[in-house]
């Protein structure tokens, strides 16, 4: 089973409270904010490594793919150190400002190029369902649409249930609000995973050494052969406006002196509301 994983470098979600907007330019201040591989991308990579390298099966290979500024190259190295076999970074000024439509278009072009070069089709493309910065849940679905492949998101389990040699049957469990849906089929497909699908492995010292010998390829817009008006801000049907920190407009009165007074006050408010 050969798998491609979409990786997204994002500002460290644990440092969310340090995100600031520059009031003059109205843009997010990214300098000095540490970037990491988005948590759900890590889950996707872990799932890919487990599926492609399952004992008792012919080992497949895992490729990591990201569209990001070139300073994020170390996130691809990290993916290699985790165990991916190859990594691809799409980096070009022309990709800047892309919304999910342009991003997925660009990623799909890269997938086609990798598949053409390797003369194969990936059985699965895995990604996080939703990223911690944008949180749209679009990219996995839209990449699948550009590639005209099946997509399933919110997947909390992926298994290869058939242990007969050469079988590529995949069983996937998708979580929706009221039910768990179990799907079965063979690739190719694009699957968006959730945080609870697995616990991603840590990078080890041996992984870092092995990563040195693995290929990390950087492609520009020219390498992909995409028209500049299909990429980046130019290729984005959504355009951003102003950014602001949300106003909440509530009074924040502080009427109580002790926990007991607070409890009494809360009960009073509840009674008044007639609950």
């Amino acid at each position: 089973m050969n798998i491609l994983v979409l990786i997204k470098p994002v500002p460290d979600p644990e440092q969310e409270k340090n995100i600031r907007i520059d009031t003059e330019s109205g843009r997010i201040v990214r300098e000095g904010v540490k970037h990491v591989i988005d948590p759900e991308s890590r889950n996707a990579l872990e799932a890919a490594l487990q599926l492609a390298k399952q004992p008792g099966r012919e080992p497949g290979f895992v490729a990591a793919l990201a569209m990001a500024p070139v300073q994020m190259k170390d996130k691809l190295t990290e993916a290699l150190a985790m165990g991916a076999d190859e990594a691809y970074l799409l980096s070009d000024k022309a990709f800047g400002g892309a919304d999910t439509y342009a991003t997925s278009y660009t990623l799909a072009a890269a997938v086609r190029k990798i598949e053409a070069e390797k003369e194969l089709q990936f059985d699965l493309i895995l990604a996080g369902t939703s990223s911690s910065d944008g949180g749209t849940s679009h990219v996995a679905v839209q990449t699948a649409e550009w590639l005209q492949r099946t997509h399933i998101s919110n997947v909390c389990s992926i298994q290869l249930p058939d242990s007969t040699a050469g079988s590529s049957l995949i069983r996937v469990i998708k979580r929706s609000e009221e039910v768990m849906l179990t799907f079965e089929g063979e690739g190719p497909a694009v699957i968006g995973v959730t945080r609870d699908i697995n616990k991603p492995r840590l990078v080890t010292a041996m992984g870092i050494i092995k990563a040195r010998k693995k290929p990390l390829t950087i492609w520009t817009i020219e390498d992909l052969g995409i028209n500049p008006d299909k990429a980046g801000l130019a290729g984005s049907p959504t355009k951003p406006g102003r950014l602001f920190e949300p106003e909440t407009g509530r009074a924040a009165e502080e009427p109580w002196q002790t926990p007991e007074e607070a409890a009494a006050g809360i009960l009073e408010i509840i009674r008044e509301a007639g609950i």
Binding site: D74, T77, L202
Partner: peptide, 14 residues
């Protein structure tokens, strides 16, 4: 180096 930084982050996480 980039590698040492990666290693430090991995060990710190562990």
């Amino acid at each position: 180096t980039e590698e040492q930084g990666l290693l430090r982050d991995a060990f710190a996480q562990f």
